[in-house]
Structures are given as structure tokens and as C-alpha cells.
Simulated scan of single mutants.
Amino acid sequence: MTDTPNPRFYDYVTPITVSRGESYDFKATGPVRRAAVHDRVGRLLGHVWTDDRQAAGFTRIEDPEPDMAYAGGRMRQILAHAYKSGVPASQLLDPALYAPDFELRPDA
């Protein structure tokens, strides 16, 4: 028996976005700001990013642990809900949008 996790948990290169028309655009039109997303025990899961105009998304860390797989789906839900609620891309780094499931720490 091997201790190597299932390779599907290492499909982390592609940013996670929601279908066009249901969320923010996935292509930035200018410089982006980002914030680190941590789980309840303080582990880094990835980064939420925004161009402050109309693009945003979530990118997972390069070497996620198998139990971190839920983060991408939950980020998709949070971003889709924010979009449908009319939250502008410029306000997506508000930690309140991600609490209590995640802690958002804006990059300096």
C-alpha cells in the first residue's frame, strides 16, 4: 500500500471560476489584488483575486492536501453568490464574505 494521495487532488493549476454569465469574468483587465484564504485551523488553501473591475477567481495552492478539495467548490459558491447579489469585484476581498468557513488575509 502506498501513502501517495490520489493524483486527482493535484489538479491545482487551473483557476476555479464559475460559468460565464453567472459570475465575474475570469480574465483580468488590469492589475490584480489578492488575498490568502486559510481554513479554520490556519492552513493556506489558495488565493482569491480580483482586478477591481469585473474579473475575479480563486486559485488553489500548488500542493493541496486531499482534505482541502472542498475549498474550490465552496469558493465557487461564495463568488457566485456575491456576483448574483451584486457585490462589485472591488469588494471581493472583504473577509466577511468568506467567514465563518474561511479566513481571508489580504496580501500586503
Rank of each mutant, 00 (worst) to 15 (best):
M1N: 12
T2I: 04
T2C: 08
D3P: 06
D3I: 07
T4G: 04
T4E: 14
T4R: 14
F9C: 11
Y10G: 07
D11Q: 14
Y12D: 10
Y12N: 15
V13G: 09
V13D: 13
T14F: 15
P15M: 06
P15H: 10
I16T: 12
I16S: 14
I16Y: 09
T17C: 14
V18G: 07
V18T: 15
S19N: 05
R20H: 06
D25G: 08
D25L: 15
D25F: 14
D25S: 09
F26Q: 12
K27H: 13
K27A: 12
A28M: 03
A28F: 05
T29C: 08
G30M: 12
P31I: 13
V32T: 15
V32G: 04
R34F: 15
R34M: 10
V37A: 00
V37W: 00
V37M: 10
V37K: 02
H38D: 02
D39E: 01
R43K: 11
R43T: 10
G46T: 12
H47Q: 12
W49F: 15
T50S: 14
T50Y: 13
D51C: 07
D52I: 03
R53D: 08
Q54F: 10
Q54V: 15
Q54Y: 07
A55N: 10
A56S: 11
G57K: 13
G57P: 08
F58E: 03
F58Y: 08
E62P: 06
E62A: 14
D63Y: 06
P64L: 08
P64M: 03
P64W: 00
E65V: 11
E65K: 14
E65W: 08
P66I: 13
M68W: 15
M68G: 04
M68H: 14
A69T: 03
A69N: 05
Y70R: 08
G72M: 00
G73Y: 00
G73D: 01
M75D: 03
M75T: 03
R76I: 01
Q77A: 07
I78S: 01
I78C: 00
I78Q: 02
A80R: 10
A80S: 09
H81D: 12
H81E: 09
H81V: 06
A82G: 04
A82Q: 04
K84I: 03
S85R: 02
S85T: 04
V87D: 03
V87E: 05
P88A: 00
P88C: 02
P88W: 00
A89N: 02
Q91I: 01
Q91G: 07
L93Q: 02
L93S: 01
L93Y: 03
A96F: 01
L97Q: 05
Y98T: 01
Y98H: 01
Y98P: 01
Y98W: 11
P100N: 15
P100R: 06
P100G: 09
D101R: 13
F102P: 11
F102N: 05
E103Y: 05
L104C: 02
L104M: 06
R105N: 12
R105H: 09
P106M: 12
P106R: 15
P106T: 09
P106C: 10
A108K: 15
